[in-house]
Design a protein around this nucleic acid. Structure first.
Length: 814
DNA sequence: CGGGCGTGTATTTTT
DNA sequence: TACACGCCCG
C-alpha cells in the first residue's frame, strides 16, 4: 500500500480548501444539469453538516456523486480529502465509476468504500498500536460461530441453556454498542450464574481472537473507534486527511458506526495540530484563530422509511436526531421520484403511512400512472413460482430483458420452489446471496490454508486444515498440540513445528511435521520481502492445494458430490487469478481481505442476461423494470419471528415498502395458500400489508378472497376479512390445508400451465456447436453427468463459459 | 481414528 | 427436507 499521509499529493497548505461558500463557480454547470431545485441545493450547499432525506428513487446517488464532483471541480477539496461510505462494495464501485465519469480520472486517492473496508484499511495500518499485526484475519459469522461453539462446549455452558446463536448474537449486540468485556463486566450482575457464565464465554472469546490475531466483523468498526479514542494523535491523522465525509444509507448505521463518524469529524486540538505540522503534515491552512483544525464537513443521506437493519443494531435515531447531534445542520428533502410509476408509488405511500412514528413524506412522480399492480394467489408455493415464471416469460416475450427483472422474497428458504420451477421453465436466473460460494466447506478449507500461511497465529484456520485432507491427525492429537502450546507459552503453529517432542506415534508426528513444512514453504513463497518477491496468490494456492493432497483427495473420492467440490476449488483458483488481474499489486492479505468483505449484493453483475433472485434485504438500493414480490403472507411478511420484537411489525412494513419501491414499471405481488416448511405443508394467510394497498391499484389475477370460493375476482373478501379469521373458516373447512391437498390442482381458476422444455435425448459431445436462446452460439467443451442429468459445458462466443442441463436448456444443435 | 448410520432439530433478515 | 451431531463398530 502506498503511504496514506507522507506522500500526500495534496499538502493541506496548498489545498484550496477555504470554505467560504463564495468560491467562484467554475464551468460546472454540467454538474447541475437536469437536477431539480432540491437536488441542486443538496449538491451546492456548503456547511459543516448536511442531511439529505432522500425518498426511494429520488436520485440520491446522482446527488452524492455530483456533490463530490462539485467539491473537486470547484477546487474546494482534493480527491484525497474525500471519504465516502456506502453500504456495499457494489454501491462503492458504482459511485466511484460515476464520479470518474463526471471528473475524468481525478478520482484517484478518494476513499470510496464500505464502513468495514475503510476500517480494515485503517486497522491494518495502525495494527501495532492495539496489539495486533497488520496480517490479522477477519472472522466472518461462520468463523465466529465455530469459535463460540468450541468455547461453549469447553465450558459446558450448553447445560445452562446457552446456544451458539444466542451467545454470538449477544456479543455482536454488545460490540455494536461499543461495550467490551470489561465494560460489560462492570455493569453485570455477578450474583446471576447465567451472567457469570456469559461473561466467561465473552472473555474467552475475546482472548481467543486476540491470540489468533483476528477481528470479527463487529470488531472492525468498534476497534477503530477504540483506536481513535485511545490515540488522539492517530485519530488526528485521519481527521486531518478527510475534510469531507459523506455517508450513504445513514438510517442503517449502528451506534459503533455512528461513533466512528463522530470521531472522524471531530476538530483537532491545537497541541495535536502543532504536532502534525512538525511531522511535516501541514495543517496551518486549516487552523482557525486559536489553532484548532475544525472538524470535517459531514453529509449524510438516508431515508428512515427504508431502515431495515434494526435487528443488526441499526439505530433509526441516528438519522432522526441528526439535527440535534450536529447543530446548525441543513436538511434537504428529496421527494420527487424518478424511478417508479404513480401506481407503484401510491401503493408504497399507502403502506408506509401505517407506520405512525414517522415524518410524513410522500413520493410523487411526473411519469404517470403506469400499469396496475398485478396480484396473484397461488395454491402452493410451487404454483406461485409457476405464476412468476410464466409472467416473466410474457414480459420477456414482450421485449423486456431478463436482467431487468427481479424476484424478491423474505427468507432464503423460499428460493427452493422458485428455483425448481425456473429450472423446469428454462428461465435463466441467478440467486444473489443465499448459500454463498465462500461459505462452502471446500472453499473455507482452501481459504484456511491461505489464512494459515498469512497469519500463523490463527489457530482456528490451523485446526481446520490439520486433518483436511485426512492425515490421521484426530481430535486427541489436536488437543495434545493445543495443551503443549498452552503449557509452553507458544502458539499452536510453533507447537506443530515442535511436534517431535510430543511423544506421539511416528506416523502422526510425521504428518504434522510435513504439513508444518508445507506451510513454511508456502509462506516463503508468499513473503513480499523475499528476494524473488511474492508469488501471485494463485500460485501459492495451487501449491498448497497440490502439495497438501487436498484437491487430489476430492478428485479421487467416491462421493459423487466431491467432484463438484473439486470444481468449486478450481473456481477459487480462477478467482485468485482474476484478483491478480484486477489488482496487480495485491498480495495475499489483500486477497483475503477482499474475500472476507464481499456482500450478497456485490455479486450482482448487471451485464448478465439473467433474472435476479434475492431477499428483500439484499434488494435495498437496487431497481428493476419489473419486480415480483413473493410470499406476501402472514408469518412470512411480516415474519413470525418479528412479531415479538418491539418495532418488529413496523420494520417488516418498511421491508415491504423497500420491495415495492424497487419497481420501475411493473410490480407483481404474489402469495400462496399453502406453503411447505420443513417438509410439512402449512396453511398461509394473506399478509396484513396487502389490505393497506388501495384496492383499485391492484388487478388480482387470482385474489386471496376468490381463491377459496372458486370464481369471482373481486378483492372484497380480502378487505372484509377480519384480522384473526382464517381462510378455512370462511368455507367451513377447518382443516383447509388437508382438504385442499386432495383436490386436483386444475380446479383453481386462472391457473397458468407451464410449458416445460424437453430436449429428449439430444446427443451432444465435445466439439459440437450449439445455439442458446439467450447466450447465443457456442461450442461444447465437455459433457458430464448421466441420463437426464447430463450437463454440457459450453464456451459461448459472447457469454463466456456456462454449464447447461442438456435435457431442458433452451438450446439447439447446429 | 474413520466412516457409517440413525435421530433430532431447525429457518429471518447480513456487513 | 436436510443437515449436524452423536454413537457404534471395524
Amino acid at each position: 500500500m502506498t503511504s496514506l499521509f507522507d506522500s500526500d499529493p495534496s499538502p493541506a497548505s496548498a489545498a484550496p480548501i477555504i470554505l467560504d461558500g463564495r468560491s467562484a463557480p467554475s464551468a460546472d454547470d454540467a454538474l447541475l444539469a437536469g437536477l431539480n431545485p432540491q437536488q441542486r441545493q443538496a449538491v451546492e450547499y456548503r456547511g459543516s453538516a448536511l442531511l439529505i432525506v432522500a425518498g426511494a428513487g429520488s436520485g440520491k446517488t446522482s446527488v452524492l456523486t455530483r456533490r463530490i464532483a462539485s467539491l473537486i471541480d470547484r477546487r474546494e477539496a482534493w480527491p484525497s480529502q474525500i471519504l465516502a461510505i456506502t453500504f456495499t462494495n457494489k454501491a462503492a464501485t458504482e459511485m466511484r465509476e460515476r464520479v470518474q465519469a463526471l471528473l475524468g480520472n481525478t478520482a484517484d486517492g478518494m476513499w470510496i468504500s464500505t464502513f468495514h473496508s475503510a476500517c480494515v484499511r485503517i486497522l491494518r495500518r495502525e495494527a501495532e498500536s492495539i496489539g495486533k499485526t497488520a496480517n490479522f484475519t477477519i472472522y466472518d459469522s461462520g468463523d465466529t460461530r465455530a469459535l463460540i461453539k468450541r468455547i461453549v462446549k469447553d465450558l459446558d455452558a450448553d447445560t445452562l441453556g446457552f446456544t451458539v446463536a444466542g451467545v454470538s448474537g449477544k456479543i455482536s449486540k454488545l460490540k455494536n454498542e461499543l461495550s467490551d468485556v470489561e465494560t460489560y463486566a462492570r455493569s453485570a450482575n455477578l450474583s446471576d450464574p447465567q451472567e457469570v457464565m456469559f461473561l466467561e464465554i465473552f472473555r474467552q472469546y475475546t482472548k481467543a481472537l486476540r491470540s489468533a490475531n483476528a477481528f470479527d466483523f463487529d470488531d472492525l468498526i468498534s476497534e477503530t473507534v477504540f483506536l481513535f479514542r485511545a490515540f488522539p494523535r492517530v485519530a488526528a491523522l485521519y481527521q486531518r486527511r478527510f475534510r469531507h465525509i459523506l455517508v450513504d444509507e445513514y438510517q442503517d448505521t449502528n451506534h459503533a458506526q455512528y461513533s466512528l463518524i463522530r470521531e472522524l469529524t471531530m476538530p483537532i486540538a491545537p497541541a495535536i495540530a502543532d504536532d502534525l505540522e512538525q511531522q511535516g503534515l501541514h495543517v496551518r491552512a486549516l487552523q482557525d484563530a486559536v489553532g484548532v483544525v475544525p472538524g470535517a464537513s459531514l453529509t449524510v443521506v438516508g431515508d428512515s422509511d427504508q431502515s431495515i437493519y434494526a435487528f443488526r443494531g441499526a439505530d433509526i435515531r441516528n438519522i432522526v436526531e441528526f439535527e440535534r447531534d450536529f447543530p446548525g445542520a441543513k436538511v434537504v428533502l428529496l421527494e420527487q421520484n424518478y424511478r417508479s410509476t404513480q401506481n407503484i408509488l401510491s401503493a408504497a405511500n399507502a403502506v408506509i403511512a401505517n407506520n405512525f412514528d414517522r415524518k410524513d413524506k410522500k413520493l410523487w412522480t411526473a411519469v404517470g400512472d403506469g400499469e396496475k399492480i398485478v396480484g396473484f394467489t397461488g395454491y402452493s408455493g410451487h404454483d406461485e413460482a409457476q405464476f412468476v415464471a410464466d409472467e416473466i416469460e410474457k414480459l420477456h416475450a414482450n421485449g423486456m430483458d431478463y436482467r431487468d427483472i427481479a424476484v424478491f422474497y423474505r427468507t432464503n428458504a423460499q428460493t427452493r420452489a422458485l428455483e425448481e420451477i425456473f429450472i423446469r421453465s428454462a428461465l435463466p436466473y441467478r440467486i444473489m446471496g443465499g448459500t454463498k460460494f465462500y461459505e462452502r466447506a471446500e472453499i473455507k478449507d482452501s481459504m484456511a490454508y491461505l489464512i494459515a500461511v498469512a497469519n500463523p497465529d490463527d489457530m482456528l484456520a490451523l485446526r481446520r486444515i490439520l486433518n483436511t485432507p485426512k492425515r490421521g491427525i484426530g481430535p486427541a492429537t489436536e488437543t495434545q498440540l493445543g495443551s503443549y502450546a498452552g503449557d509452553n507459552g507458544i502458539t499452536f503453529r510453533e507447537a506443530m513445528r515442535d511436534a517431535g517432542s510430543l511423544g506421539l506415534g511416528p506416523k502422526v508426528t510425521n504428518a504434522i511435521l510435513q504439513l508444518s513444512a508445507l506451510l513454511d514453504e508456502a509462506a516463503a513463497k508468499a513473503d513480499p520481502t523475499a528476494p524473488a518477491g511474492a508469488s501471485p496468490v494463485a500460485d501459492v494456492l495451487t501449491f498448497l492445494l497440490d502439495q497438501s493432497g487436498y484437491l487430489e483427495a476430492l478428485r479421487s473420492s467416491r462421493d459423487p458430490q466431491d467432484e463438484a467440490r473439486a470444481e468449486n476449488v478450481e473456481e477459487l483458483v480462477a478467482v485468485t487469478k482474476e484478483f491478480a488481474r484486477n489488482n496487480p499489486d495485491g498480495g495475499l492479505i489483500d486477497f483475503l481481505t477482499e474475500v472476507s468483505l464481499v456482500a450478497a449484493a456485490d455479486e450482482i453483475d448487471d451485464s448478465s442476461g439473467t433474472v435476479s433472485l434475492m431477499t428483500l434485504h439484499t434488494a435495498k438500493g437496487l431497481e428493476y423494470d419489473a419486480v415480483f414480490l413473493t410470499g406476501v403472507e402472514e408469518d412470512l411478511l411480516p415474519h413470525r419471528m418479528s412479531a415479538g420484537e418491539p418495532g418488529g411489525p413496523a420494520e417488516e412494513r418498511r421491508l415491504f415498502y423497500v420491495g415495492i419501491t424497487r419497481a420501475k414499471k411493473r410490480l407483481f405481488l404474489s402469495l400462496a395458500m399453502t406453503r411447505a416448511q420443513f417438509g410439512e405443508t402449512a396453511v398461509a394467510m394473506p399478509s396484513r400489508y396487502l389490505q393497506e394497498i388501495p384496492a383499485d391499484l391492484i388487478d388480482w389475477k387470482q385474489s386471496p378472497g376468490s381463491a377459496t370460493s372458486r370464481g369471482g375476482t373481486q378483492p372484497r373478501a380480502l378487505n372484509a376479512r377480519r384480522p384473526g379469521s382464517r381462510w378455512g373458516e370462511e368455507t367451513g373447512q377447518r382443516n383447509f390445508g388437508a382438504a385442499a391437498l386432495d383436490r386436483p390442482k386444475a380446479e383453481w381458476p386462472n391457473r397458468i400451465t407451464a410449458t416445460v422444455r424437453d430436449n429428449g435425448d439430444l446427443e451432444l459431445a465435445a466439439g459440437d456447436r450449439i445455439r442458446h436462446t439467450d447466450f447465443g452460439d457456442g461450442r461444447v467443451t465437455a459433457v458430464t453427468g448421466e441420463g437426464t442429468k447430463r450437463v454440457a459445458h459450453v464456451q459461448f462466443e459472447k457469454a463466456g463459459t456456462k454449464k447447461l442441463l442438456i435435457k431442458i436448456a433452451p438450446i439447439e444443435k447446429l
